[in-house]
Design a protein around this nucleic acid. Sequence first.
DNA 1: TTGTAAGCGTTATCAA
DNA 2: TTGATAACGCTTACAA
Lengths: 334, 334
Amino acid sequence: MSTIYEVSKLAGVSLATVSRVMNGSARVSETTQRKVKDAMEQLGYRPNSAAISLASKRSNCIGILVAELDGVFFGSMMSGIEATLREFNKHVVVTAGHSDEKDELDGIEFLRTRNCDAIIVHAEKLTDAQLIELAKGDIPLFIINRNIQEIANRCISLDNIYGGYLATKHVLENGHRDIVNISGPDYKMDASERVVGFKNALEEYAIDYDPERIFIGNYHQESGAAAIDHFLEQQIPFTAVICGNDQMAIGAMSRLRELNRTPAEDVAIVGFDDVSFAACTFPTLTTIRYPIDKMGQQMANLVLSKVYQIKISTQIQHSFEPLLIQRQSVNAIG
Amino acid sequence: MSTIYEVSKLAGVSLATVSRVMNGSARVSETTQRKVKDAMEQLGYRPNSAAISLASKRSNCIGILVAELDGVFFGSMMSGIEATLREFNKHVVVTAGHSDEKDELDGIEFLRTRNCDAIIVHAEKLTDAQLIELAKGDIPLFIINRNIQEIANRCISLDNIYGGYLATKHVLENGHRDIVNISGPDYKMDASERVVGFKNALEEYAIDYDPERIFIGNYHQESGAAAIDHFLEQQIPFTAVICGNDQMAIGAMSRLRELNRTPAEDVAIVGFDDVSFAACTFPTLTTIRYPIDKMGQQMANLVLSKVYQIKISTQIQHSFEPLLIQRQSVNAIG
DNA sequence: TTGTAAGCGTTATCAA
DNA sequence: TTGATAACGCTTACAA
């Protein structure tokens, strides 16, 4: 592997000049530039990123902490971020927090020691206070999927409350009154916010809120099924179920089938996220769209502008609106 | 941010000694060790990874090239790899190749300039020859989901032919004779191998292979639906459809529903991969399990042992067997 | 426009 | 067991 030094010798210029043509950091005459580029070409020169990092105090790498590396939701998010960042030759280091406080903290620490220029976190167990504290640290922290007042300019989030409201209102409008809710873990902000929206909608329709009608799941399919069992066991009547995400929705649908209750026909189902398979369930799933890929792109732009002072053509959007996607899993009754 | 130098001063020892206790690279007396550790603690010292990389010629980072960062299959793969690698303090840089030759080449180049210690590729457009050539380069290349003779010790793969065979044989055993195949893109190795298995099974049952009965999809849901339309338009009769992956299988099921043909009852469906939602479709999807998470872990172990000379407790498994998972989407007929 | 030279924070080779 | 010290490959004042 050749170094900048060899390039400079072959080109007959100084180290500094080679560095300049690499970075475009200063004017270099056409001829010199040609010589240098030829030399680089000839030697198959490839810059050493560690040396660059060390000298420039910048790693050009952005850390991402997600709950899980698998999972369609996080996939879309990472995809949106990476694509944008890579255009600017930044790369993405990912790690998983497993919805566990210690793992999340470890993950962030791991990324810090990796000298990431910035860290984007999708935290689930860390509190706002912890995040605010971490944000005071040496490395810029950005938060996706949560809006924290104190560091709002570093957050990109969705109005989950409104999303929960939209979902619930939709079944209410379709005449449903016996509604249950399969929520994500209550320690997850987004989950509890969606529940708030659920309550708001009920209130609007003057329906008493009954805590018995909420089942706390874990955002995975199985818990959607478990929730159905639970409600049935508790003999809680329902004609509609609002789910914290699409995975639990399909879990619930699947279990209902097993119990000979037909989704849509017998029980209305609403999901959340609108992941790709939502359009292919049977019946197709009415859900709330969470534009996480777009949000990921915006986050990348935010990092680009704040950390690398790269000017982004468009205004960065910090807050997103959920959207009701009507498909077939909600029938009107009454 | 404090440096090793400040630690050494505070501890009253030399740079070298601090380095030694960090790496355990040589014996250091208990007392000295204590002093150094206390000093590190006190200063909140965090090693600079760029400096380490530069001096040690090792970045402790492993690049991964996948087709897409979203997609359940790749998610499981990355998850398996990352979890294992992180235990050894290696981190993972990911990038997407978008099933495009140029993007794949770019992606690998991108990871190379990032000075990754190794690159794990899930290539779709690159040929064996290209991969072999790349493997000769300066940075160790590992291949997942493909077995290339010449570099077999750097490959971890699944017997896709056998998988295709298993899927097809299963419907044959259930009495189906009019079978169509919705394949992934023909330029994708795994897709065409699965088709070979399909043909093998037909041959075993003395059924003539008819190229008309193969539809080349793109592994996405929509193409599963498109395939159904195609076969119907062409008036090709079928009672069973073998799919190249689970996404296309749900796409096909979904389209069949729309056309009032009930999956399982009217048409048997078999998927491939056994992604998480396969257990929650209606009917639940009979499919071929592709243990990609396990394969990812093995790949991580392979890298750990080959690149970092870390001894792995268990023998590394280079080739995996697919497994038929029987659910409800295949009914017996005849 | 170009060159000189002092870092950047480690590792690793020698000596001691 | 410890300490000096020369790399490692690049950036970036400061000069020329």
